[in-house]
Every structure is written in C-alpha cells, then in structure tokens.
Amino acid sequence: MTGAPAAPVALSRSRGVLHALLDAPGRRNAVTPELLDALHAAVDTAEADPGCRVLVLSARGEHFCAGTDLTAPVPEPAAGPAAGPEAELPYWTLLDRLTRTPVVTVALVEGRATAGGAGLAAACDLVLAGPGARFRLTEALVGLVPAMALPFVARRTGEQRAFTATLLAEDLDAPAAVAAGLADLHAGEPAQALRRTLVALSRVDRSTAGALKTYRSRLFPRDARLGQDAGRVFLDRLTDPAVQPLLDRIPTPERAV
C-alpha cells in the first residue's frame, strides 16, 4: 500500500511572512496542475491573513522550477465566468495574481529557473538570486513560444533584452540576471539576504504595498486580452504537429520546458 503523494508546496510561517517551498525536487519542481493549485492556495492563505505582508517562494533541490511538465495533460483554461476557448490558462492567472496581490511576493532563487520557472520568478515583486541561481528561457529550442512567461520577464528586462534572451536561450547566472534586470539582488548568502529584505519590508504596511502595486498596474497596464492571447499562442505551438518531433527529443524523465 502506498501513501498519498507529497504536496508539491510546503507552507510555513514566520512573523508577517508566509513561506511557500516548492517541494518536488524529484520532478525538478516543474509546473504541474498540482503545483499551480498549491501556489494559488498559498496566495489564498497569505491574503486571508491580515497580518501577512510577504509571500516568499523558494525551492528544495537543484531546480527552483523547471517549467511546464510536458508529461502532464495539456492545460485547460481556468474555470470561472470567463471559462471557454478564450479563457486564461492557470499558469497565466497565477503569474498575474502574483503581480497584483496586496501581499509582497519574493522569489528566492538558489537553483535553476528554467522556461516557465523563470516566468514564475519574474512575476514576483522581488527576486533574490543565490550563487547557484541560473535563469533560462528554453522554449524556442523545442519549437515553443514562452507566450505567458515573456510578458513578465519583459516588464523586468525590457522588450529587446527579453526577446534576445529567448531567441538565444541565454543561460544567465546570478550576476548576469541582475545586470539584465531579471533578478534584483545577487547574494552569496541567500538566507541572510532574505532576512535583510524581510526586515526592510517590515517597515511598509500591507495596505501601502497593495496601493503601490495597484498604482503600478495602472501606470504600466497590460492589454486586457493578453492573457487569453498568450494561452492561445502557447497551446497552438504545443499542439502543432511540426513541433512534436522537437518535443519528442526531450528525454522522458526531463520532459519539462
């Protein structure tokens, strides 16, 4: 008899902070429906606690997040009033939510953030990169377009820098990621850097942080249909017969991009 599979995200709390640890290192913390559900639940938990100011995303293992698990079923649009062929995909809704929640979101990246994993980090308000951090958009290598991750990367790096990093599948270490704007801080001691960051964030109350994030979204608005368009572009490429031979080249144990 086997037990239930371990949760892909482990939650813990400290004063004013909810820590969400991506905890599926055997799957390289890849983006699966279960991971997305667990991260949405983490945001729910943070938002429901009026004393929570910060949500920290970190990961166990060598990979912060390896991107979309291609062995999982093709993602379906999120349920709700907008559900249908033009609805947003769950990955997009999570990234968009991380940018809009009144809770400050911090990504502590100590391993590889690849493809959708780089997008997950980029959607956070602050990105701290440890000495082993690497950031890479690999989708173009297998015929895909990082349609959902790219807007969140580009808002940090600028349009051309994000395009170049995607087209060349650049593998950015922590200093290069900071130079590109994809990360905010390169720290030799990530735990200490996180503590200093949390101390600084403790001086800003949640309502102020929320108001600042709301104003940022109004100051730099996204097209209201971008989420739907991004999902359609991603799925069109994922299901294109011409792309399948490229996807089939990915070794089965590592089918995440």
Rank of each mutant, 00 (worst) to 15 (best):
Y91M: 03
D205H: 12
F152Y: 13
E159P: 08
Q160D: 09
A72T: 11
F163H: 03
V54S: 12
A183G: 04
E76R: 14
D96Q: 00
A162V: 05
G119T: 11
D49T: 00
R13A: 08
V106S: 05
T71R: 13
P251Q: 04
A4Y: 10
L57I: 02
G111H: 00
D229C: 02
P85C: 13
L94I: 04
P25D: 13
P5D: 08
A211N: 15
D44G: 07
L120C: 12
S207Q: 15
G227D: 09
P131Y: 05
T93S: 14
F234V: 14
G210P: 10
F234D: 10
M1Y: 02
A174Y: 13
L126G: 06
L95Y: 01
V104A: 10
A38H: 11
R15Y: 02
T2L: 03
P77Y: 06
F163G: 13
A7V: 06
V43C: 15
A133E: 10
D125C: 11
D49N: 05
E47M: 08
A107P: 03
T214Q: 05
F163V: 03
S58G: 09
Q228F: 07
D49W: 01
H63Y: 05
P102Y: 11
V142I: 06
T157Y: 03
R134D: 01
L18G: 15
D248R: 10
L150I: 06
A169V: 02
A118I: 07
D236K: 08
R203K: 09
E254A: 02
T105S: 03
P102F: 06
V199K: 03
A123G: 13
R134H: 09
S14Y: 15
G116R: 08
R218W: 07
T208R: 12
F163C: 10
D69Q: 01
P253A: 15
A78G: 09
R218E: 06
A133D: 00
T252A: 15
E34K: 13
R100C: 01
S58T: 09
T252S: 13
A46C: 03
A87R: 07
T105M: 06
T164Y: 14
V103N: 12
R195C: 12
T214N: 14
E88W: 07
T2C: 01
L194A: 09
D23M: 07
P102E: 06
G116T: 14
L194F: 07
D23N: 04
A242P: 01
G210N: 11
R53G: 04
A191L: 09
G181E: 04
G3R: 00
V257W: 07
A187Y: 03
T101V: 10
F135Y: 11
K213Y: 08
G80I: 00
T93I: 09
